[in-house]
């Protein structure tokens, strides 16, 4: 499977620093079309108007958490229902990982993480690039 590096990627995090870090790391991996959202609700608004090839989301956000965003996406009837979804979070308890998996997450990255981990998880979800 060939990964289209021009695909749109949506990153969701309430910490602007984190958005900037992930965007920079994605840019170094060759992905330049990256949109940002600071909470789940804003992410849903963006997803209604644009097709994304990948969503990378934090968990701990208000008013809508990353888990709620994931559940909403997976239960919707829109064309983004099956969008690949990676959770990037400091929540590292087993029950969190299980809840995310049950909600339909494709992969799970625990903060702090490095570029290599991000690339590895993206490869496991999207294929080699």
């Amino acid at each position: 499977m060939t990964v289209d590096k021009n695909m749109n990627i949506l990153i969701v995090d309430d910490y602007k620093t984190m958005l900037r870090i992930i965007k920079n790391l994605l840019s170094q991996l060759g992905f330049k079309n990256v949109d940002e959202a600071t909470d789940g609700k804003m992410a849903l608004d963006l997803m209604r108007n644009k097709k994304y090839g990948l969503v990378i989301s934090d968990w701990n956000m208000e008013p809508m958490t990353g888990l709620e965003l994931l559940k909403t996406v997976r239960s919707s009837n829109d064309n983004h229902k099956a969008v690949p979804f990676i959770m990037v979070t400091a929540e590292s308890k087993t029950e969190n990982v299980i809840a995310a998996k049950e909600a339909g997450v494709n992969n799970y990255i625990v903060k702090p993480f490095n570029a290599e981990t991000l690339k590895m998880k993206m490869t496991s979800v999207l294929g080699e690039f």
């Binding site: 620093t17 984190m18 870090i21 790391l25 701990n60 903060k111 702090p112 993480f113």
Partner: peptide, 19 residues
Amino acid sequence: EAAITKVFEACSFQDITGQ
């Protein structure tokens, strides 16, 4: 570029600290 990547990775401490 490799060194800059390391710096960006390290900057994620701010998010963890905040949480």
